[in-house]
Write a protein that binds this DNA or RNA. Structure first.
Lengths: 201, 201
DNA sequence: TGCAAAATTTCAATGGGTGAAAACAATAAA
DNA sequence: TTTATTGTTTTCACCCATTGAAATTTTGCA
């Protein structure tokens, strides 16, 4: 499992990620070419594509793991859990993960966030990944509460909660900047979704 | 305003849209080239780009108008309206518009829906457009109820409602197929968002 | 008709992405 | 340790979306 081969691949992967983020930061996403990234990571351009399917995907190197963690949380819910309880736990988890830089420096984590919010191509990819994640999560939620929910209600719940947080956070980002503020806004948005839009009337 | 020039441009635009949809249907989105679309519409490949910014964008030829209509609905709300009342009116309007094929045959409208749900590139574009729309709508909602809502609550409300409908409809589409069914699911999802996720516990 | 503005075409390039064969490197078997 | 095997990377030759600029054609109007 941990032969030279595997270790080398991990190193190459990491090198590609770091090279890409560094270059995106320096020259901008559109402006850096795959050739430059590959050169900086000391591999051929073609090799890039055996690690990532597209230029955008380097930026989302860890989304898969994150999703798996969320799904696992759902699968291992405790008997007494409520639907909203489990959903909120997932939200908390995701925020913690976002704060805890895994594998990269905190600066790179911030840089990545800025890139995703800034570059249309990355925003589009992020939205697609988030959408697919929501579908998987809603299915896992349904499987965790098959007696209490329909598939559609599970989907509506996940969509409403994540939709509320996503939009509130985005609108807020245009005004303020601190991580704590985003946190607070996300909590408030969760509350709106949990207690229903009618509470706003 | 309605000179030869304008009419000709409209015809070219329409020709491009129809050529593209026809070809996407016949050979698939990835498989048809811009050159083929342009040839079928009797213009040069370069000209395509003075009508649409990308291959994906032909498919979304009318999203701008739709958004404007939604925003207008919000701007012209009547004094007695509630937040949820206005939001629901927008949802209804959008569904009616989707059913009423504007400018194209109903078959093409269905084809377009299938394409968007099927092709990853189109899904991504759709999600990005929807996201931007939600931001604009949430701002318009805030401006319609400046005394009752904060910007963040407006965003949370729009995100929750549209998020719930979007995900519920998508999950449902994998099972059933009729337009009426999707309608029913959307209504139910709205209800979940309006009355809050806690009602599911 | 004849000119200025707008739209279209042609041409040349850039860069992301892919398939296939050749060259290399790691591992396991003998 | 040599060898056969298998996985990885490189090279090479493409395709196609997209863009800028210059040349050309169309249309609107004086």
């Amino acid at each position: 499992m941990v032969g030279l081969r595997e270790r080398k691949k991990q190193r190459t992967r990491q090198a590609l990620i770091e090279a890409a983020l560094r270059l995106f930061d320096d020259k901008g996403f559109e402006e850096t070419t795959l050739a430059e990234i590959a050169a900086r990571a000391d591999v051929s351009t073609r090799t890039f594509f055996s690690y990532f399917a597209s230029k955008e995907d380097v930026v989302f190197y860890d989304t898969h793991e994150r999703l798996e963690m969320a799904v696992t949380t759902l699968a291992t819910r405790r008997p007494g859990d409520s639907v909203t309880g489990v959903l909120l736990r997932i939200i908390e988890q995701s925020f913690e993960q976002a704060a805890a830089y895994e594998g990269l420096t905190p600066e790179d984590a911030a840089l990545r966030a800025r890139l995703i919010l800034t570059e249309p191509a990355l925003q589009a990819r992020a939205l697609l990944l988030l959408f697919d994640s929501q579908i998987r999560i809603s299915k896992a939620l349904y499987e965790a509460f098959p007696e209490r929910l329909t598939q559609e209600d599970a989907a509506a719940a996940v969509g409403a909660l994540i939709g509320a947080i996503k939009l509130a956070a985005m609108v807020n980002l245009e005004h303020h900047r601190s991580l704590e503020e985003v946190w607070a806004v996300a909590r408030r948005a969760s509350e709106v979704a949990l207690s229903g839009l009618r509470t706003l009337d």
